[in-house]
Design a protein around this nucleic acid. Structure first.
Lengths: 222, 222
DNA sequence: TCGAACCTGAACGAATCCTGAAAGGGAGGC
DNA sequence: GCCTCCCTTTCAGGATTCGTTCAGGTTCGA
């Protein structure tokens, strides 16, 4: 679940409240960041303020929809202006809520959105002979399915979302480990090794290239 | 399109306005009539007042949903009471609007519902040898009927609506339990176990696959 | 040649899941 | 009104997997 809201107090209030309800909540502070996070992670629901720095909520919503991203969006409108509401729905939002609102109502509407679910279909990530389905949590190499642990899956998803990019060890830690992780970064090497064993050695083809001093890269071409 | 509204002036105002927008509009004057019309005709959208003679809007909505009728419903709440709104969404309404409202907003929301509303849930969910009829609350494996408790039914319906997807334990809790449920998530494991004994063991075929650290998946293929 | 960065395999502890049983709760029958 | 049955929820023990650490080896660049 993603909350895009620039008012720090409201944002942290929402985050805490939603987490208490058992949701995993990310927060973005402006429109650009929100758009980036919404495109790079598969959220169940996005709570999107309209008045935002960099890019306003309408723009974020429209661009998401233009990208074929149909994650349910709940918009927060500042005033009860009717045109705001109409425009919100027409840019592709699924629902909206006028400030000020009560937390109970917010929860109810989020639940309604979740129940209704994403209208769109699974985005399957495919690079070369690798194929990963985030919704189904399935992964296959050259058509043959390979079992992955949660952490392995997270790493692989990260690589497949940025094929060809060099991804630093800290970026991997940020993305696949708890933000408070304090352990040995060597763990990334261990997991790269595991991916290599499962993906490369079993199918006789190198996929993960080490860039000394920088990170790792997923090899794209054949 | 069906409008269920007992205030004659408002009803005819809506009918005329919507017809001017190119919609074909039926009007029902009380809850029973509205329910009957909604069940006997396939409408695109139902606009449903809460305060109604005979049966109120909540009841109509709930009974429609219980029958497996998933026509998009836009509820009209008399006051801006938050609980009204939350309850409206929880009985299965897709959206609501507080009186008084402007016609522009009504149109925008109806448009949003129509856009989304093509979901048209199938009457019967069928995956492999599993067959579940939400309306009739019946379930069978390979033609043989199996009795389910309400919670078991809810779980199974969830799986059958997203065959092949991994469904997390929290998603299951959100979907089949009261949102205020605070108990042990282990209860999901218990119910998965129940489904396995009823569905799998009795028919010698595995349907529910555990994805460690992620959730459970309904196996689709043979 | 030396050091830093990376690789590798094994091993331990913790998290996750399974399972059976038994305790609570609510609706319906008598 | 009370009892009974069925459904829901809790609990605890055990099995398995996963995450993490560690120690030593290897490669690369200066």
């Amino acid at each position: 679940m993603l909350v895009v809201e620039d008012e720090v107090k409201l944002a942290s209030y929402l985050k805490r409240g939603l987490e208490r309800e058992g949701h995993a909540v990310d927060v973005a502070g402006d429109g650009e960041q929100g758009l980036w996070m919404a495109t790079s992670n598969p959220y169940d629901v996005v709570v999107l303020d309209i008045m935002l720095p960099k890019k306003n909520g309408y723009v974020v919503c429209r661009e998401l929809r233009a990208q074929g991203n149909w994650t349910p969006i709940l918009m927060l409108t500042a005033k009860q202006g009717e045109l705001d509401e109409a425009e919100a729905l027409d840019t592709g939002a699924d629902d909206f809520l006028s400030k000020p609102f009560s937390f109970v109502v917010l929860l109810a509407r989020i639940r309604a959105l979740q129940r209704r679910g994403t209208t769109e279909r699974p985005t399957v990530l495919e690079v070369g002979d690798l194929r990963l389905d985030p919704a189904g949590r399935r992964f296959s190499v050259g058509g043959e399915e390979v079992a992955l642990t949660p952490t392995e899956f997270c790493l692989l998803e990260l690589f497949l979302r940025r094929p060809g990019d060099v991804i630093s060890k800290t970026a991997i830690l940020d993305s696949c480990w708890d933000w408070a992780y304090e352990g040995d970064p060597n763990i990334v090497e261990v997991y790269i090794r595991r991916l290599r064993t499962k993906v490369d050695e079993a199918f006789g083809r190198k996929h993960f290239h080490t860039v000394r001093g920088a990170g790792y890269r997923l090899i794209t071409d054949g």
